[in-house]
Amino acid sequence: MLCQNCEKNEANIRYTQIINGVKKEIALCSDCARKLGIDDLRMPINFNSFLGDFFNDYAETEFLPMLQTTELKCKTCGMTYNDFINTGVFGCSNCYDVFSNPIDSLLKNLHGTSKHIGRGPKGKAEKLNVENVDNKKEEKKTESKKEMLERDLEKAIKEERYEDAAKIRDELKEMK
């Protein structure tokens, strides 16, 4: 049977759609199925949520009663333990300290222990600077303040207010 979409290739996927009780069947080749976005017959298991389920089952047992009462939240990335259960991954390094209690039991369950005994980094590399939007805003602010002072300085000199001009000049010097 030929693919009912392109009518060129041999059909090897039968796609059945039922909407409001109306059943439609169409035979497709794998190319067309991919184009139409229905090729993923081998649906991959979301491993992360699978892990999360495991952690969740684990969290609900008597081992971790503290989790039901207080919702821990990581201040650095905003992650809650529930978020972790849903995704199976932590948000940042700080999460490991915030959720240290459940993590200890979790790691013991996963690995049999929760203490690292392998090697550690020896390098003393400098911390990375994230060029974020806030930084740029601040830069702009200081820039405009500088401009403002320069304007004031010009004005003060024009008006022969030399005492004020000296003050502004000192302030400008400090900024540099």
Binding site: N48, S93, Y96, S114, G120
Partner: peptide, 15 residues
């Protein structure tokens, strides 16, 4: 600079 914890070692997104 690697993210390293004195107890947990190299930190990774997935435990």
């Amino acid at each position: 600079p690697y993210s390293f914890h004195k107890k947990y070692g190299y930190l990774t997104a997935c435990p």
